[in-house]
Structure formats: structure tokens, C-alpha cells
Computed example of a mutant assay.
Amino acid sequence: MPSEFQLIQQFFQREQAEQPAAGVLLGIGDDCALLQIPTGKQLAVTVDTLVAGVHFPLDADPQLIAERALRTNLSDLAAMGADPLWFTLALTLPDSNEDWLRSFSRGLFACAREYGIALVGGDTTSGPLTITIQAMGAIAPQQTMRRDGANAGDFILVTNTLGDGAAALASIQNSRVFNDEHAEYLLQRFYRPIPRLSESTLIREFASSALDISDGLVADLQHICDASDLGAVIYVEDLPLSAAIQSLADPTQAQRWALAGGDDYELCFTVPPENMADIAMLIAQGKLQATVIGEMIPGHKVICELDGEPFALTTTGYQHFSP
């Protein structure tokens, strides 16, 4: 059985060595990486753990698992307005299956090359399959998008479409049946969510606050409300929905997935009225796909309305460790 160091060298160190990265003074192979932050920038750091059977199926393709793990971390960088730089990887493995590791490594580095982020260190250990990635990026201080910057009257927008992550999980678990084209689209949305990094660079000088939607729109928007000491209203009829989930016979199910399903990894951001002309121009030019879905209001809670009437939810989003 290969040792930990042999596994790291075979599947991770050699691959990264072929991709020189800016700011890496010392990368994989020592006790610490030595990194040089770009001049005048702040370092944004995020970390996420994915557990087999909780965040992805036990029998999922390791190449897709790797892509999902890195892409979801890149989404956090996008939410802050940060440009990707480096990441570390901690792998807990039930065994040293070289075919599994080869496929995982292939997916990981394909994604890393696509988004220009470098692996600079990590760890491996034995146990139930668990993947932890820490991603780092750089951001100019005046362009940071935080959760505490919203004001009453700000418009609430989301990128792309919502509800696809929850619909994908339903499709994977066979609790909902979609045609082949829609099923493939949803599978890609689940395993290969697009971190909205290019959108982030466009909106970061106009947005007052932002986050990415991982636990569900209502649950995540509540974080902006809490940080900004405000409430929010969502106009359910304005939620952007993909053709895949619009194909459902039950439109209410599609709306509930969009509001509370999670796993979308789209950006939710707020924009002051005086900046909406700039955002509207980006949308009109086709540079930004985003939809106004509500506004920030006095209060403390997120409320949902459908055609002016209250829209009830039985759950607002994914709850970690909930019974």
C-alpha cells in the first residue's frame, strides 16, 4: 500500500508542479506553503468539508466529486468579490484506491486550471471519505462584498436560475423524473456548479452586500438580514427558473426548490437604487445574467409574497445537524 507521501507525490505534487503559480514561493512538500499576497490586496480565505453520503452519493464519480468540492469553494470567493489564488486539500480516505485517486486528481486539476487556482498543500488520512478544501483569493479592500452592507430600499438580485440544485438531487434520488436532456442539465448543475467569478468582478463595485446560495435562498438571505439589521421581501413570481424545473407539472414545487432547496451556488446580492442603472446596463449588454427578485426592508425576517399574497414555506433551507 502506498504511503501518504507517495500518494501526495503521485497524484497531487507532480500535477501541480506542471502548473507554476504566481505568488507561490514554496508549495507542496514542506511543512507549510510560503505565499506572497499581491500588493495592495487583502486575503480572502474560505474552507468547506464534503462528506460522502451527506454532500454527495457514496458511489459518485470521483472526478465529479473533485469538481464539486473545488467549485463550491470558488463560489465562496466569488461571493466576497475575490479573485482565486491558491487552495489546500485534506482527504480522508477509506483506502488507497489508486484508480479512484487518479480520477479524483483529474477532476480536481481540470477545475483548477479552468479557474486559475493552484494547489499549495494539504493532508491525507484514513477514515470515511471526507474532502476538505481551503481556498484563498485576493481582493482590493474597497471592492469587498460583505453581508453587512445592505440598506433599506436596496434591490435584491440573483444570478442565473434557482432551484436546479434541489431538482438535481431529486433526479439523482429518483424522487422526480425528468427527460434525458433536463436530467443531464441538472446533473451538471449539481456536480459542476459554476462559481460566478466573472459575475463577481462585474458587480463588486456596485453591490452593497452579497453571498452565495448554498443552503437555500431564504436561509442565506436571512444572513444578510441579520448582518445588516434588516428584513427582506422576495417576490416569488419573479424567481428565475430553468426550463428543467419549469417542466414540472407542479409549479409550486419549482418555487419551493428555488426558495429553500439549496445547492445552487448562485450569487444573491443587493444593489442601492442609485447603482441599478449600471447593473441594468450590464444585463442589457448580455454581460450579466441576473434578476431582481425583491428588496431590503425594515424588519428582521425574510418574507415571501406571490402576487401580493403571503407565500408559506415549511422549510427555509438546509440545516446542518438538524434532526
Score class of each variant (00 low, 15 high):
Ser96Val: 12
Ser96Phe: 15
Ser96Lys: 13
Asn97Phe: 02
Glu98Ala: 11
Glu98Leu: 08
Asp99Val: 11
Trp100Leu: 02
Trp100Cys: 01
Leu101Lys: 06
Arg102Ala: 10
Arg102Gly: 04
Ser103Thr: 03
Ser103Phe: 01
Ser103Arg: 07
Ser103Glu: 05
Phe104Ile: 07
Ser105Met: 06
Ser105Asn: 04
Arg106Ile: 02
Arg106Glu: 06
Arg106His: 11
Gly107Ile: 05
Gly107Pro: 02
Gly107Lys: 06
Phe109Ala: 06
Phe109Asp: 05
Ala110Tyr: 03
Ala110Ser: 08
Cys111His: 10
Cys111Lys: 08
Cys111Ser: 10
Cys111Phe: 09
Ala112Trp: 03
Ala112Ile: 00
Arg113Ala: 11
Arg113Ile: 05
Arg113Gln: 09
Glu114Ile: 01
Glu114Gln: 06
Tyr115Val: 01
Tyr115Arg: 01
Tyr115Ser: 01
Tyr115Gln: 03
Tyr115Gly: 03
Gly116Ser: 04
Gly116Cys: 02
Ala118Tyr: 00
Leu119His: 02
Val120Ile: 10
Gly121Leu: 07
Gly122Glu: 04
Gly122Gln: 07
Asp123Gln: 08
Thr124Leu: 09
Thr125Tyr: 05
Thr125Ser: 09
Thr125Ala: 02
Ser126Ile: 09
Ser126Pro: 03
Ser126Phe: 11
Leu129Gly: 09
Leu129Trp: 14
Leu129Ala: 15
Thr130Glu: 14
Thr130Leu: 15
Ile131Ser: 06
Ile131Gln: 07
Ile131Asp: 06
Thr132Cys: 14
Ile133Trp: 08
Ile133His: 09
Ile133Cys: 11
Ile133Arg: 09
Gln134Lys: 13
Gln134Gly: 14
Ala135Cys: 12
Ala135Trp: 10
Met136Pro: 04
Met136Ala: 08
Met136Leu: 13
Gly137Trp: 13
Gly137Lys: 14
Ala138Pro: 12
Ala138Ile: 12
Ala138Phe: 15
Ala140Gln: 15
Ala140Leu: 15
Ala140Trp: 15
Ala140Thr: 12
Ala140Val: 11
Pro141Arg: 13
Pro141Ile: 13
Pro141Ser: 13
Pro141Asp: 12
Gln142Lys: 15
Gln143Ala: 15
Thr144Phe: 15
Met145Arg: 12
Met145Val: 05
Met145Pro: 08
Met145His: 10
Arg146Asn: 09
Arg146Met: 12
Arg146Ser: 10
Arg146Pro: 03
Arg147Thr: 00
Arg147Leu: 00
Asp148Met: 07
Asp148Trp: 06
Asp148Asn: 14
